[in-house]
Simulated scan of single mutants.
Amino acid sequence: MKKTAKFALIKTIPIFLGYIFLGIAFGLLLQKSGLGVLWAFLISALVYAGSMQFALVGILTGGLSFITTAVMTLFINSRHAFYGLTFIERFKEMKKAYPYMVFSLTDETYSLLCSMARPADFTDREWKQATFFVSLFDQCYWVLGSVLGALMGELIKFDTTGIDFAMTALFVVICVDQWKAARTHIPAVAGFICGALFLILIRTSNFILPALAATVAILLFLRRTVEQKMEEHNP
């Protein structure tokens, strides 16, 4: 377990750097909205959805209805349903850890798990442990950052505008790593084209869901081509 935990710790260092700063930004926002450290800990531990947590600050302070909150949550986090399809069989094999793995599958954790190569000396059990630790460590980083931000609260006297760009930069770095390691770039190109097209058509953050749906449809249509490309590049 020590070996797998060390492996996961090293792999999640980039996410640690991003989650700490963005978590602090969330904690600061929460504190300035009149909600304290306990709220920061509970929301990050039980909700654990970056963009939704920022939206939740306005929901909690604005007194929105349960139905409105549910609809907002569905639209903001609906993309995770597509992510989960990729790992559903892999997570089921983890048995007791399965519910937590589903719960903790964030954008960044998903990207890391997709690009993370299994070491040759890892057994199946050790690989599952490493996968679990990646998800666990990522959430711990987020909780730590949120609590730190809430604790710092009003003591911070600088403009934090733009601090959330740390996550955008992190996602770009992970995307580049995946591009280099991928055996075929068809899925990435399809996702980029669909994302750009629907962003132009819709012009709001709601473009993500239809873009993902279109990407999935294209990949299903090109499934045989993608599989052939994967086989051609098998070592």
Rank of each mutant, 00 (worst) to 15 (best):
G162Y: 12
I59H: 12
V47A: 05
L56G: 08
M152G: 11
L74Y: 13
P14N: 05
E232M: 15
G63P: 03
T109G: 01
Y48P: 01
L212P: 11
L199Y: 03
V134T: 09
A40I: 04
S111M: 13
F75Y: 13
V102I: 14
P14R: 02
T61A: 12
I193T: 08
K3M: 03
D107H: 05
A182S: 15
P187S: 14
H233E: 12
M52V: 09
A81Q: 13
S33M: 07
F66S: 02
A211P: 01
I156C: 11
A169Q: 10
A190I: 09
S65E: 06
A55Y: 13
T160F: 14
G63E: 09
I15W: 07
L222C: 15
T4N: 01
F54W: 07
G58W: 11
K229V: 09
A182F: 00
F66I: 11
L136D: 08
K3E: 11
L222G: 11
F75H: 12
I193N: 03
A196T: 06
I76R: 00
A25C: 10
T109Q: 08
N206V: 09
F91V: 08
G62A: 03
L112C: 00
G195F: 01
A97M: 11
T12A: 03
M94F: 02
G36K: 13
K95E: 08
L199Q: 13
L9Y: 00
Y48M: 02
S135K: 01
F192L: 14
T215R: 05
L201M: 12
G23M: 08
L155S: 13
T161W: 05
L219F: 05
P99H: 10
F207R: 05
N77E: 04
S146A: 15
I174P: 08
L38Y: 03
L151V: 13
L56Q: 01
I10C: 04
A45C: 08
A213Y: 04
G191C: 10
A117I: 12
D107V: 03
I202H: 03
I88M: 11
A196M: 02
E232V: 15
F137H: 12
A181Q: 15
F75R: 06
A49L: 03
Y19Q: 00
V226F: 08
V37D: 01
I67K: 05
I67F: 15
L17Q: 07
D159G: 01
Y100I: 11
